[in-house]
Computed example of a mutant assay.
Amino acid sequence: MHIEVPPDVRATAVQLGAGVPYALKVLAGRLADDPDMGRPSGLHGVLTVMADGDLFEDCPDLSVGYVREPDRIRIRFLRPVDSTEPSAAAHDQNQDREQGRDQDQPVDTAAAAVTVREIADAWHRIARRLQSNAPDSCAALRAGASSAAIAALEEDLGVRIPLGLRVLWLLTAGDDGADGGGCLPGNRALMTLDAVAAAYRLKMDSRANQDTLNANRPEDERITVWKPTWIPVVALGPADSTSGLYLDAATGYLGSWSRYDEAPGDELDTQVTYLEEAADMLEAPDLATRDKPGLIGGTLVWLSRIDPVREERWRPLTG
């Protein structure tokens, strides 16, 4: 479901507090999952949903009005809820308690808020280091994808895209690479949305072929090469999708994949821990253990997969 947030609503969010844009993103993600979660507002065709400001930094309690259409949701207004007026927020919460619905909702909202903040903070840390030290690599990052583009990809894949991945793609829609390498450890690259769709189709075709072979094998000898919930997100390089990392939408963990259908490997990282470790290595390169970041001119180059021909030009990144 496409969520449309008009410019005036985005501007209002910025004016209301530093944490309000995050809160709005969280609500947008929840509305994409449950378009009918709102309640009648008294305005014709407009539903409202409340956000608890205590779950976000620098954010008041919010009332968000939206219109649900067959193929999209359009946010109509964003208003702070006056804490001196128990009114709508308190009344809605009491009704939720009576219906047994509110016990799960605050937990879900809190978890979503944390996810949005962690992904955004980790990526901003990476982007800031690139901007300061590796301008060529920074320039290779694409602008954020639109909600419509992400919704179209979700429909194409037929799998729900996790909130954290939505947030990342809203910040950047992929890495075109600098000097043939991406900005993530191992010179891997965040895949563009088109590359994600192409790799997913290829792996689903491999799955279908393997299922045919598995039909004639004992159960303990069957091979899993791909699952529908696995979303490819990171490639070996900007122009090399022979292998990479996928995000399991069912578990939230990353795993490794290859075009050659080797058994997938577990990375034991979530999207958050993977990005946070990359940011940590860029901010404190002397303490990095998994890989070593460095520079060749204005390009970030990770030592683990450096071309030997270029190694003499490589200089370690300093903190």
Rank of each mutant, 00 (worst) to 15 (best):
V234I: 15
I296P: 00
V167D: 07
A113D: 08
T84W: 11
G38A: 01
R313F: 07
P86T: 12
R79Q: 11
P6L: 06
I296K: 01
T242A: 07
Y246C: 10
A110Q: 06
Q15D: 15
A110D: 04
G29C: 00
W257Q: 00
G29L: 00
D269S: 05
Q99H: 15
D220R: 02
L171Q: 12
G237N: 05
R125V: 06
Q99W: 15
A13E: 04
W226E: 05
S41G: 08
L27E: 07
A112D: 07
D104H: 15
L282V: 09
Y246F: 13
R125C: 03
S63W: 14
Q99G: 14
R222I: 10
H2I: 13
L245M: 13
A173V: 10
A90N: 09
V5E: 12
D54C: 15
A195I: 01
P308W: 00
N94R: 11
A32S: 11
G29T: 00
R201P: 07
A28I: 06
Y274G: 09
Y260R: 12
L247V: 03
L245G: 08
G237P: 01
R217H: 12
I150F: 00
P316D: 10
L24I: 06
D58M: 07
S83L: 07
M50N: 09
W226M: 08
L247E: 06
N94F: 11
V233M: 04
R117G: 08
W314V: 08
E311F: 03
E312T: 12
V309N: 15
T251F: 02
Q105P: 09
R117K: 13
D8I: 12
E154H: 15
A199C: 06
V159F: 01
I75Q: 02
S83T: 08
R259N: 12
D248W: 01
L300A: 05
I296T: 03
A215G: 12
P135L: 05
R125W: 04
L27G: 02
A134W: 01
A88P: 08
L153I: 14
P218W: 09
A90Q: 10
N94M: 15
R217V: 13
R39C: 07
R166S: 09
N216E: 13
P7T: 02
E277T: 10
D71L: 06
D136G: 10
L236Y: 14
A122V: 04
D34G: 14
G265K: 08
S83E: 09
W226F: 07
G174M: 03
S41M: 04
R10E: 11
P135H: 07
A178V: 05
E219Q: 10
Y200R: 00
E4L: 06
I3P: 01
D156C: 11
V14K: 14
D261S: 10
S147L: 00
F77H: 08
Y200Q: 02
A148H: 11
R101E: 13
R313C: 09
D54E: 13
T48E: 09
P185G: 05
K292Q: 00
P228S: 05
T273N: 03
P70L: 03
L202N: 12
R217Y: 14
D261N: 11
M1L: 10
I150K: 00
D102Y: 12
E4S: 07
R305E: 14
H124D: 14
L163D: 02
A215R: 14
A88H: 01
A151G: 05
A197F: 05
G298T: 06
W123G: 05
R207S: 09
Q99V: 14
V5M: 07
E69G: 12
P218Y: 11
A145I: 02
A51N: 03
R128M: 12
